[in-house]
């Protein structure tokens, strides 16, 4: 991209930044955009996750955070405390003994908060749906879920796809539109 002719063009003209984000355009030093879209872009690009691995899917989540399929380039950092986290990735089987603790953790996170349900066990009980007397068949029986990622366990690329879907969902939210409106437009 950086040949000498194109560099001259950049310095002298106003050009479109990226064909997808049509609403940002800049001269060097100045960005003009709508406030809502700027805030959505800032919020979706730095989602801090709560370290919450339960079972086998937690190992794939750790692999996603490691260097091969990096999570950090999307702005996702693991934080141990729910007060400092934005997104909770429920990875693994939810049992009845653990269900009340998940509810407490979800209520301790501060708004706006999101939940990704990773793997087959958190979505619907997984391979333990038939005779599991101690397995909760799906984490959406106790907390509201935004994105479901299927797989047993899902590949790291599938989890990154789930994160990008969540980012697309956050893009469409309006924080400032009307003070009395509901925060999420869905």
């Amino acid at each position: 991209m950086n040949t000498i002719n194109e560099k001259d063009n950049l310095l002298n003209n106003k050009i479109e930044y990226n064909s997808k984000d049509k609403n940002f355009y800049f001269e060097p030093g100045v960005i003009i955009a709508k406030a809502d879209e700027l805030f959505s872009w800032a919020r979706k690009s730095s989602l801090w996750q709560l370290t919450f691995g339960l079972a086998c899917c937690a190992i794939e989540m750790m692999s996603t955070s490691a260097s091969n399929y990096d999570f950090d380039r999307f702005g996702v950092i693991p934080r141990p405390s729910p007060r400092q986290a934005d997104v909770m990735i429920v990875s693994g089987t939810v049992t009845l003994k653990m269900a009340s603790r998940i509810k407490i953790l979800y209520e301790q996170m501060s708004e706006p908060k999101y939940v990704i349900s990773m793997g087959s066990c958190a979505t619907c009980g997984g391979p333990y749906w038939q005779h599991g007397y101690h397995v909760l068949k799906g984490v959406d029986r106790i907390i509201p879920v935004d994105v479901y990622v299927p797989g047993c366990p899902p590949r790291p690329e599938a989890l990154l796809d789930g994160l990008i879907t969540l980012q697309k969902k956050i893009e469409k939210e309006y924080l400032l539109k009307e003070k009395n409106d509901n925060k999420r437009n869905i």
């Binding site: 079972a55 049992t95 003994k97 333990y128 038939q130 005779h131 599991g132 101690h134 397995v135």
Partner: peptide, 14 residues
């Protein structure tokens, strides 16, 4: 312990 008890032995009998 017991927060991840997934009833393996009951499934194995079925």
């Amino acid at each position: 312990i017991g927060y991840l008890h997934r009833c393996f032995e009951k499934h194995a009998e079925a």
